[in-house]
Amino acid sequence: MRNYDEDITLMLKVKNGDIPAFEQIMKKHEKPVINTIYRFVGNRIRAEEIAQEVFIKVYNSAKRYRPKAKFSTWLYKIVTNTCFDDLRKKKNISASFFENEIPDPKQSSQDIILEKDESDCFVREAINSLPKRQRIAVILREYNGLSYREISKILRCSTKSVESLLYHAKLGLKEKLMPYLKEGKI
């Protein structure tokens, strides 16, 4: 609740043209925002570019900002919409997914790191195979710890729909990841 109040106070300062307040917001949220986008698009460079777009949108929307909901809900709504816009622009996103991201086994000398990277790839590949709404719902729930209610506000649907989205998403993920779990690769 304290964080929630802090964010809203900062955002209201940004609304009045306070640039240091905007920097504080960026400093606080840049990492979770970039990671959310990274998990969605699967590419570091693209994730940073989209995150830049997100914070520019935050800055531009500051004048119209009204603290109706939690700041994080508002922020992740922008994140989600920007990710969806990017997906529309670049339909070949899944093709670029593995471009720079899968580590080359020959390049790594440490087996532990290799194993971690490999299991990471399985998880990422499984998430990337989900439809966009299921994918973002899983990411927001699993990595950002958002409640069904918050996700419903972000995706503009009912909590029942979020429950259904996550049910189908997680069953799909289970199907994809169970074989690796059984083989002990994860």
């Binding site: 940073e48 971690k116 990277d117 990471d120 998880v123 990422r124 699993e142 997680k170 993920l173 990841l177």
Partner: peptide, 17 residues
């Protein structure tokens, strides 16, 4: 399955972000 999600790596924003 969802315990495996914890393994997912985190990235750091670039210093110039």
């Amino acid at each position: 399955v969802f315990e495996a999600f914890c393994l997912h790596e985190e990235i750091e924003p670039s210093p110039y972000f």
